[in-house]
Structure formats: structure tokens, C-alpha cells
């Protein structure tokens, strides 16, 4: 579940990066009404991912033309490395994705080839879903590329708005996180384009205890322009803190097994 990981990460880990980056780069942490946003997001991320993880998940994709489910498993190490592999359907069994060094490779067992996704295709859907290759890679850098402000705080949640830093090469014009105070878990994230039009929303549901973590096991990606389409990522199993080496996330592993 590179995917899940990636996605979750992508979605959340940006926050981690933000925190870390801010902590190291900014002279002063951004504070608003006594909340350290970076700290907050980092907390969310750390709660969500251990140092390493293994997941299995089902991705259900609904488009106007077709509807299908993919079962996959994934591994992750830190923020930068993850690997996913499709288990079902049989036709695509073994199709794998490796994210490393901010790049994405796909392995196609049918033709026995590894394909590096070219920069121009980073915006294309990943595995036909409403998640893009870009999401796998770029989102973990939101913290570096965006400035955070606390937009709203209620008894239940914080709402944190991210706006691109002046010279950052970014995909989104604005990202808004809504994080529940209870267990510090995300409720939803809204993405806007340069014209500040909402493009999609990611909702988080099915909050469960997994070991000593509390996390939402369902993630729903909803494109704003197509209300009848969506991608639902449902985590089946999550195991944290496995003994994974960096060398595991290699092209050899991608092709192998």
C-alpha cells in the first residue's frame, strides 16, 4: 500500500514535511492562537505512519463509464519510499508502483517492463483512479511549498489553509485541511486550483484503533466536477514498524517476487 500509504501520506505527510521544514528552516514556528500548526500536522502524521508500514487495501473506483475494484498491498519507509503491488484482479496482478527520489516507476508483469513515469504524465490518474501520480510524489512536499495559516478553530477541529509560497512550483492554488482535535485525525482535505475553484475533496471515515494508533481506514476522493465519480480507498490491514531496509525499495524488488 504504497498507495494507501502514499495517499495518506501524500495527503497528510505534507503536513509532516511542513512541520519539519518549518522547524528547521523558519526562525520561528508559525503559531496561531497558541497552536503550532507544524507540530500539529506532524503529530497527525506521526500518529498515522510509523517509521515503516505494511498495508493491504481495496481501491474502489467509480467512473461514468465503468466501476472496478483493485486489491493491493503496500510497504513504506519514511516519507520518501513506498512500493505497492496489485493483488487483484487477475489481469493486472503484479502491476507494481515504486515511489522513490520523488519519482514514480511502474512495473508491468505482462510485458516484463519497468516504466518510469515522465514528468508530463505526473498529472495522469494512478491506476485509473482519481489519484494522480503527482499525489504520490508532490504531496509530501506541501509543507515546503505552502505557507500554513490557521483559518478556523472550533471545539472539535482546526482548519488549516495552505497557500503556495511565491516561487514554489506547485499543483494546487490552495489546500484546506480540517483536522479533528479528537486523536488529531484528518476529517477532510479540499483542493483548489489557481482560480480558487474547488477541484476535489478527500474525506476520511471509518476511524479505528490499530495497535496504539487511531486512524481513519477509509479515504474517499471526490472530484468536484464529477459528483457521480469517486475513488474509495479502504484499508484492510495496517502493520507498523516493520524491519524494512532502504534497499527493499529498489527496481529489483519492483520487478521481483
Amino acid at each position: 500500500m504504497h498507495t494507501s500509504n502514499s495517499l495518506l501520506r501524500a495527503l497528510k505527510a505534507m503536513a509532516i514535511m511542513v512541520i519539519m521544514a518549518c522547524m528547521t528552516a523558519l526562525p520561528q514556528p508559525v503559531r496561531a492562537q497558541g497552536v503550532n500548526l507544524q507540530q500539529l500536522v506532524r503529530q497527525v502524521e506521526e500518529q498515522y505512519n510509523g517509521d515503516s508500514s505494511h498495508i493491504t487495501a481495496t481501491m474502489h473506483i467509480v467512473t461514468r463509464q465503468w466501476e472496478r475494484s483493485i486489491t493491493l498491498e503496500g510497504w513504506s519507509l519514511g516519507r520518501e519510499l513506498c512500493l505497492t503491488r496489485i493483488l487483484e484482479p487477475a489481469k493486472e496482478k503484479g502491476v507494481s508502483t515504486l515511489k522513490a527520489d520523488k519519482q514514480v516507476w511502474n512495473y508491468l508483469p505482462k510485458v516484463d517492463r519497468v516504466i518510469k513515469i515522465p514528468p508530463s504524465m505526473m498529472g495522469a490518474p494512478w491506476m485509473g483512479s482519481h489519484i494522480t501520480n503527482e499525489d504520490l510524489v508532490k504531496s509530501s512536499h506541501v509543507d515546503l511549498d505552502y505557507a500554513l495559516t490557521l483559518e478556523e478553530e472550533t471545539a472539535d477541529f482546526w482548519r488549516i489553509a495552505c497557500t503556495p509560497k511565491t516561487d514554489a512550483a506547485v499543483v494546487w492554488g490552495r489546500i484546506v485541511y480540517t483536522i479533528l482535535k479528537d486523536h488529531t485525525i484528518p476529517r477532510d482535505i479540499a483542493y483548489y486550483d489557481d482560480a480558487m475553484v474547488k477541484v476535489r475533496t478527500i474525506r476520511f471515515e471509518d476511524v479505528q484503533h490499530v495497535g496504539d494508533h487511531v486512524l481513519p481506514l477509509r479515504m474517499i476522493v471526490q472530484p468536484s466536477e464529477m459528483p457521480d465519480e469517486q475513488t474509495i480507498l479502504q484499508y484492510r490491514t495496517i502493520t507498523f514498524d516493520l524491519p524494512l531496509e532502504e534497499s527493499f525499495f529498489s527496481l529489483r524488488t519492483l520487478k521481483g517476487k
Binding site: I61, T63, Q65, W66, E67, R68, P89, K91, E92, V95, N106, L108, K110, V111, R113, I115, P125, M127, G128
Partner: peptide
């Protein structure tokens, strides 16, 4: 290798 999206959502790929 050629990869594309199939009309049924599958990953179309072949040599």
C-alpha cells in the same frame, strides 16, 4: 512497451 488506460478502467499494456 505501450501502456494506456483501457476503456474498462484496466491497465492496457503490451509489447
Amino acid at each position: 512497451a505501450f501502456v494506456t488506460r483501457g476503456a474498462d478502467g484496466s491497465i492496457g499494456n503490451d509489447l
